[in-house]
């Protein structure tokens, strides 16, 4: 069996004239926690739905657990957990009924796992889903997805609209149930702190295109900021991610700065500094213009 749980090859999807996902290719190795980042409308949900075979791509293909996304057999589906955006649940069912309902679909249902997550979120089996808070709903959705002990967990913005306590509870559950083992997770999120805590790998989608795909620590150590005097002319450097004017200085975020490029900047009097993950991600999401050399597809970034 392939070591890659997810493989996307040139996945592209149009809605009418509008391109939602443009030629996206990447691979997620087994045991990896991958964070899919990008602004609202950048194509994260569309990409996830195509990977799961819920949406047909206009072009390109993908495999998941070794099966074509459009032909995942039920046996393999049973090894995939999916939590859709907003944690949708049947509102008329109670928490206990939801569990009873869901468990029938999964031969691998582990009630101990289910119980521990439901208890972690302090949920009551007799509460109707419709009267749960957002955080509680997230807890139930996560418990339903994790109880079958899936090999692959796909979470579409699990922390959307949650308070800090619920958000932390979700992280704790993910680490407790999934971390360090063979379980693979693909999650989309806007919470950079969560990404720092749990992600092994970071994928950044910007305007439908994958602009970075690297190990998180690789991204952190290979993206740097150079600050130069504004009066000097705009430098042409390989790997430039974004430029930003601030006061009298020009801030350049550069990925994989080569010695020549970095040397030229430093010789021109630039100050060099490390960036935070959030700085790096924002730089990727606020850049404009043509595709630039970045850590996307770097072999050094492979797990």
């Amino acid at each position: 069996m392939s070591d890659y749980v997810i493989q996307a090859n040139g996945l592209t999807r149009y809605f009418g004239q509008k391109c939602a996902v443009d030629q996206v290719s990447f691979r997620i190795p087994r045991g990896c926690i991958a964070a899919l980042l990008g602004r609202n409308g950048s194509g994260k949900t569309t990409l996830m739905r195509m990977l799961l075979g819920m949406l047909e791509p206009t072009r390109g293909s993908s495999t998941i657990l070794g099966h074509q996304s459009l032909a995942i057999p039920p046996e393999a589906r049973g090894r995939i957990g999916y939590v859709a955006e907003g944690h949708p649940l049947y509102p008329w069912m109670t928490v206990g009924q939801l569990a009873a309902h869901q468990s029938r679909f999964y031969p691998t249902w582990n009630n101990t796992v289910y119980r521990s997550i439901v208890d972690h979120f302090q949920l009551n089996d007799s509460t109707r889903a419709g009267s749960l808070s957002r955080g509680q709903r997230a807890g139930v959705a996560l418990a339903l997805a994790l109880a079958p002990e899936p090999e692959l967990l796909v979470l579409d913005d699990p922390s959307l609209g949650l308070d800090p306590v619920a958000r932390r509870a979700i992280l704790e559950v993910i680490i407790n149930v999934c971390g360090g083992g063979d379980r693979t997770i693909l999650l989309s999120t806007h919470e950079m702190q969560d990404v720092e805590r749990i992600a092994d790998r970071v994928l950044i989608l910007d305007q439908s295109q994958l602009v970075a795909d690297a190990e998180k620590d690789y991204l952190l150590s290979h993206v740097q900021e150079f600050i130069i005097d504004n009066t000097k002319q705009n430098p042409d450097i390989r790997g430039l991610v974004s430029t930003r004017n601030q006061g009298n200085s020009l801030h350049l975020i550069v990925a994989n700065a080569d010695e020549a490029g970095a040397g030229a900047l430093l010789a021109a009097g630039a100050q060099q500094s490390d960036v935070t993950l959030e700085d790096a991600v924002i730089a990727y999401l606020s850049r404009r213009g043509s595709a630039l050399a970045g850590p996307a597809g770097q072999e050094g970034g492979a797990a």
Partner: peptide, 18 residues
Amino acid sequence: SVRALAEQLVVNPNTVAK
């Protein structure tokens, strides 16, 4: 242990292992 520290700090166990 790797697992215990990961849970305590709420970080990916791979990070602690590294």
